[in-house]
Design a protein around this nucleic acid. Sequence first.
DNA 1: GTGAAAAATGTAAGCGCTTACATGTTTTCA
DNA 2: TGAAAACATGTAAGCGCTTACATTTTTCAC
Lengths: 374, 374
Amino acid sequence: MRGLQNAVEPPTLLTIATKYLDDGGTGKHPRHLVKVNKNKAIPTLADVARRAKVSTATVSRCLNSPDQVVGETRERVLAAVADLGYAPNFGARALAAKQTNTVGAVIPTMENAVFARGLQAFQEELVRHGKTLLVASSAYQARLEDEQVRALVARGADALLLIGYDRNPKLYEFLEKRSVPTLVAWSYEEGHAQPCIGFDNTSSMVELARLVIGQGHRDIACISAPTATNDRARGRVEGIRLAMAEAGLDPRDLHLTEIAYGIETGETAFRQTLAAAPNTTVVMCGNDVLAIGALRAAKEMGLRVPADISITGFDDIEIAMLAEPALTTVHVPHREMGRRAAVMLINMLRDNETPRSVELPTDIRLRRSLGPVQ
Amino acid sequence: MRGLQNAVEPPTLLTIATKYLDDGGTGKHPRHLVKVNKNKAIPTLADVARRAKVSTATVSRCLNSPDQVVGETRERVLAAVADLGYAPNFGARALAAKQTNTVGAVIPTMENAVFARGLQAFQEELVRHGKTLLVASSAYQARLEDEQVRALVARGADALLLIGYDRNPKLYEFLEKRSVPTLVAWSYEEGHAQPCIGFDNTSSMVELARLVIGQGHRDIACISAPTATNDRARGRVEGIRLAMAEAGLDPRDLHLTEIAYGIETGETAFRQTLAAAPNTTVVMCGNDVLAIGALRAAKEMGLRVPADISITGFDDIEIAMLAEPALTTVHVPHREMGRRAAVMLINMLRDNETPRSVELPTDIRLRRSLGPVQ
DNA sequence: GTGAAAAATGTAAGCGCTTACATGTTTTCA
DNA sequence: TGAAAACATGTAAGCGCTTACATTTTTCAC
């Protein structure tokens, strides 16, 4: 930021001299350097005002609401701004104006394409409205997420985008107390104080599971991220169970393995699953990354997909389509979610009111990795 | 941010009453609301100080250099902080301390896994040092990048991470003038004022091209991102040419197609390439994403890879290994690059000096998509 | 126990903006 | 033509921190 200069540069001869001489010996400024505008000190509003022979208020108005200033004056000020290479000091502006024009987002990780995509669209839309994005990631850890949220708020985030609803109620209280508009994405659930934009993880998975069951599968296994602190993962597992119950199967028969997201972990979980439940005919995975791992493990084990075993994913990231065989999965409109999340948050900031939550549709992408039971 | 509350909430009865009564009728505060700590006004440092019965300086020290405060006092202050739910005001802190503890990064896009990965590692390392990440993306457009860099600086970024060296010299001047420490990543080139961390795009590609030529390929085509404003893309193409010259081939015979990065664009470019240069036996792509597109197009065209045509990529993202056939590519240590970039930038911020640039090694991942000429 | 040095804490001056209100100047129109 | 309204600009009070320097308290060698 602008003042940095003073902090990082060793005093030059000029500034040192200034230090002791420039207050005219009155002793009124015993401790602070007086700015010397040569010597590349960074210009302030006051410098601009002086040069343009107007008050600081007028300069400020020129910059923030130019139509309040008459043409001639404005030009003079703008010329001074250009001459001096002036740019406003961020901290001062934030302090005085009580907003930073910065929006924070805490996501599990940028390494999963779903978040990278969503965030990219989110950021693009923010820029369009003159906002900047602060990013932090939680690595799917509640404690880290908590810290990051607080850090972003402390860093002046005017509003926040969070993924999913599961988190410490204290954190929501904190956000409430600080009146930080917060939007939840990647989930759609009724009955929360915070608005959301997302999709219904449960019913999306119900739909996919119906399709799976329709193919004759009865021995279903699921590889999921840990469900205890992840409402999206929980919803997806629940979806499978609901569809099973609906089809007259016992939901308790679902063979569930919980493991962190990752290709390697997906491989591991797949092996474990088949070791523990050898009759499994389909492995429904909590996301595409796990499914890719499962696919790879299946290949290594000499199993043909889908002849010997079917595998499904969730998200429809690029890999899903490129895998061999291509992955049956649930397509989620990540980019749209990101873009619209930005719009909602900007409106919340402007109108200071809670908007209606938005449910986005998902759809099944039926590809070769899912086949009928042999 | 903190003071937002005043700005967005309509005055309540309580605050209205306060407005006119609370200065004890002295008229000393005719225009400003006096804070009412009930009624969810946001606590300030002064509130904490009052409650802990210490000075604001002590509270500040507790928060910023706790070891300067004796145990008992510190606990009392921290208790007050917790009771009040205090968190420092960002703008005030930035203004007074002349730094934001915020680092900016402008990358082409988060949607390419290489940047997502690098940025993820970058961010994790920043967090470890108490810094926050400001992100913007340029979509590979110079003008947009220029704007974003200026925006991040205006938003108080203490330091900046940029991708590649190619950009308007004016922008470098600007950064120089504002003394914003800047690190260039994804490139390694000598002779620039800004330090960098990255790899030598040219020599990495030379190595891969040697391997290709070693397999007997003579009719080489290349699909690259536009080279005019992208030193990395330019270096890679140059690498192919160098290797050709070295092998006694005419570098001008390289059939080059420039197109934006993307799977679809890769497909398109591949078709164009084979239409224009049907004797091509290998298509070397500027990155993995283009290569995946090429691979797909080849399949659609009924070409066997590598029997009929070889294809190579660059980056070694996840998809490269999962593709069918798996992609021969140049492995780049993106995560390490991101992590170390953060460390370098933090050191630059601390020591206020330009560090030595760091060259990271790359290595070839030879996989099935490259084979000998038939 | 004493005095000096070290450690802890307090005081208060900014940091560079925004903006409520005050003041001065030009329009408008009866 | 003159009073009111509309407009342009100025004045100066914060915004909530950090930190240089001042003051008070503790520590410790002798």
